[in-house]
């Protein structure tokens, strides 16, 4: 279908305009898709939380509350944007876009299925790492520009946290890249078609890498038990204390999209992306491969939600202890271990 649109566009428009139009179309499609996906992740979070807590969750707007977050978004859009007098206007307004744009940017390179991928660049993993750490600048700027002490503390914590955990995320991805020998996402998935999922191929070091990635990834997205940035019982709402309406919604949405990104990376790197388990839908041509991708992503997201609704929050120095004393050394050893595994060809 994308091919036919592409051909049609190029047939009726001059080449330059056609390619721009195509890009805009793709951008709009992605924006719409992920805005809605983000909203439904919020709904999922609320439902999952409710079930963990023996509640029902949203159930008033639409059947089973499926329009609840739509209604919330509508409310947030129509809300007055308030801020204090003393905020740094320019930075204050810029910060939410920083966060949401970087989150959406990262989405572009994921191969949801063989066909459904906006860009297939050969340094995909590298690009992801680079992009995902820009978001923290938005949080820092937002916290700083709010001119609120709670927001400032939250922002400082965020900087601390992201800088530390970026290492672990990077190193655990590196461990897996050792195994694949490629940074291109589609290629990483293709490798898994023959030898089984990477978590299977890499066995022990891969499992360790996965665990570290999940911990560090949860920390990257500022979710409980690493939600020190918001830490509602300590800082009120942390860095977004002073934000309201749609600007707050951007932060909120970005958190969920980031969660989706982390889960997507995990799926690509460890669980074979859009490949079906044991190749059960391999021969069926009409079966949308994207289904498997989303199922796996949702399972990983569920795991992250499970963490959130079970664990208490860490303290700021314990956060650093965990990273520098536990995750980082284990990670380094694990890389060496993985290298040995590959060298001796212990790959399953």
């Amino acid at each position: 279908m994308t091919k036919s649109i592409h051909d049609w566009l190029f047939s009726i428009l001059p080449e330059g305009i056609a390619s721009i139009t195509e890009m805009v179309l793709i951008a709009v499609a992605y924006l719409a898709l992920f805005a809605i996906a983000g909203l439904y992740l919020v709904l999922l979070e609320r439902k999952v939380a409710a079930w963990f807590q023996l509640r029902l969750g949203p159930n008033r707007v639409g059947p089973f509350g499926i329009f609840q977050t739509m209604a919330d978004a509508l409310k947030l859009v129509s809300k007055e944007l308030t801020s204090t007098d003393r905020v740094d206007k320019f930075l204050y307004n810029l910060a939410p876009y920083f966060v949401i744009v970087t989150a959406l940017l990262a989405m572009t390179i994921f191969p949801f299925s063989k066909q459904l991928q906006a860009f297939d660049i050969n340094i995909g993993m590298f690009f992801l790492l680079a992009i995902s750490s820009i978001g923290v600048i938005g949080i820092l700027v937002g916290g700083w520009a709010s001119n609120n002490k709670y927001a400032l503390i939250g922002a400082m914590r965020s900087g601390l946290q992201t800088i530390s955990y970026e290492l672990s995320v990077g190193l655990s991805i590196l461990t897996m890249v050792l195994l694949t020998g490629s940074l291109q996402l589609s290629e990483i998935i293709e490798i898994q078609r023959t030898g089984g999922w990477l978590i299977w191929q890499g066995h022990i070091p891969a499992i360790i890498a996965f665990m570290i990635f999940m911990i560090a990834g949860t920390a990257e997205t500022n979710r409980a038990p690493f939600d020190l940035v918001e830490a509602e019982s300590e800082l009120g709402a942390g860095f977004h204390t002073e934000y309201s309406g749609m600007k707050f919604a951007y932060f909120f949405l970005a958190e969920f999209i980031n969660m989706f990104i982390i889960a997507s990376i995990a799926v690509v790197l460890f669980f074979g992306g859009w490949l079906s388990p044991f190749g059960i839908t391999e021969g069926i041509t009409w079966f949308p491969e994207v289904f498997w991708f989303f199922i796996k992503v949702l399972l990983i997201i569920f795991l992250m939600m499970w963490f959130r609704w079970t664990f208490p929050r860490l303290r700021v120095d314990q956060l650093l202890t965990l990273e520098w004393k536990y995750l980082l050394p284990i990670n380094l050893v694990n890389i060496v271990f993985m290298a040995i595994v590959i060298w001796l060809n212990w790959i399953l």
Binding site: A50, F52, L54, R55, W306, F307, T310
Partner: peptide, 19 residues
Amino acid sequence: TGMRVTGGYFLNARKGTLT
């Protein structure tokens, strides 16, 4: 262990809600 407690409630969430 903690996750098992909450997970157990998650699986039985349909049986009875508190609210």
